[in-house]
Computed example of a mutant assay.
Amino acid sequence: MKILMLAQSSNPIPSPSDKIFAPGVIFNEIAEGLKERGHEVTVFASSDSKTKAKLVDFGIPSTHNKSLETDKDIWYRYYQHQMYLASEVIKEYRTGKYDLLHIDEFRVAPYFSEFVEGPITCTYHGIPAEDHDLRFDLDKLRQKRFYNRIKYIAATDKQKELGSKYFNFVATVHHGIDLNRFKLSPRGGDNLAFVGRLIEGKNPDIAIDVAKKSGRGLDLFGTYDETSEYFKTKISPKIDKSINLNGHVHYTKMGSAYENAKALLFPITWDEAFGLVVIEAMACGTPVIAFDRGAMRELIVDGKTGFVVKEGDVQGMVDAVQKIDTIDRAECRAHVEKNFSAEKMVAGYEKVFKELVLK
């Protein structure tokens, strides 16, 4: 197949060096994986991107580029850039040289979708809820207006269930990771770990409470804003010798963080669509203890690769930590190898694309 792909312009693909941009990592795994399977893949993305697929960038860097950090109109620039890329990718798609267009963002490109024929698919990374991706009336209006034009691919069945009213899901393809980046650690370390942005909803403050109640240290990995009210009131007062605030670690180096953890704590209180850190941890043999929200039961085999605890039950998480040694770390790795490899993900996308092209 000849496949045209449009990336998000907010960040370079696969990911900038100073933060983890999961959609970019997934997007690039799909692009490069399809190329390796013999397809012709052309990617429209920012000029600071790096990919083995053919890259078209127009010399415009992502809004993440450091030279733009002080730009007061950062979001205006982002949408202008995304609209420019969308218009150019539609222009290219109209040449008729491609079998399918795959987009990685859903707020801009759909407005151009009716100017061209041929299948258009989109990976949906978000949370289809009114406090997230459907917060404005225009969000709902847009999704209804282009419902039949864009074929969405869900990351989990839970995401599909929650969002089917506004997103025309045609398939579920679980995200996958490059297992060469993550090695099995048969024993792990003594500390617990939390990986992700230090914000409310992801709740690193609860992870700290669980670690302290369990009598274990906690390694926090992720970006944070020391000036935010959440950090000042919920995180900073709890930092002591047992809590290690590591900041951001590049995604290519996160393997060692997971390998050295006794378990990963994932105390989310929103409907996380996937949770890439969950499968990355299990790929290293590290079991995951998560609150029962979003897609956690699709990713974690309760009692086998970790524990899924009732939302908000801090003591339940503490109890899970106490029995974490009952989890076979090799089984965690095998679970990811079977269900969440990059190869399986790419094969899933290839299957969906072929079905749509042949219709």
Rank of each mutant, 00 (worst) to 15 (best):
L134P: 03
F44D: 04
W270A: 00
V41T: 13
S15M: 01
I153Y: 12
L245K: 05
K202G: 01
F106N: 12
L358C: 14
A193M: 10
K158G: 08
N28Y: 05
N11R: 08
F307V: 09
P61N: 05
P16H: 01
T223V: 13
P14T: 09
D99H: 09
K323L: 07
G348E: 10
T51W: 02
T63D: 05
A342R: 07
T286E: 00
M282E: 02
K35D: 10
S228Y: 04
V352G: 10
E226Q: 06
K50G: 13
L138W: 15
S185C: 03
K213S: 12
D137K: 06
H335C: 06
R94A: 09
S49N: 05
L245I: 11
Q322E: 15
K97S: 15
V249R: 07
F274T: 01
I60C: 01
K97I: 15
Y76D: 15
G312S: 03
A290F: 00
I327Y: 01
T326Q: 14
F106L: 09
D271F: 04
E298N: 08
N11E: 13
P16N: 03
D48C: 11
Y152P: 10
I327E: 03
A171N: 15
F353V: 06
D328P: 09
D133K: 00
V41W: 08
K202F: 00
E92Y: 04
K351N: 15
T156N: 08
K52E: 15
E280I: 07
K66H: 13
F112C: 05
S236Y: 12
N339T: 10
E331L: 11
D292Q: 03
M1F: 14
T95L: 05
K144E: 09
A22M: 12
H64E: 09
F353I: 07
W270I: 09
V249M: 03
I177G: 08
I327T: 07
G189R: 10
E355S: 14
R216Q: 13
Y258M: 04
V25P: 07
Y224S: 04
N65T: 12
L55P: 14
N244G: 03
M254K: 02
H248E: 06
K304R: 15
H335W: 11
V173E: 08
N28H: 02
V336M: 03
K212D: 08
N191E: 15
H174E: 14
D319K: 11
E29Y: 09
D57G: 13
Q315E: 14
A22C: 11
V301I: 14
S15T: 12
T121V: 13
V318E: 12
G59S: 04
V309E: 01
Q82N: 03
I327F: 00
T121K: 05
D133R: 02
G316N: 06
T223Y: 00
H102K: 04
S214Q: 09
D133L: 00
R329G: 09
V352Q: 04
T123L: 03
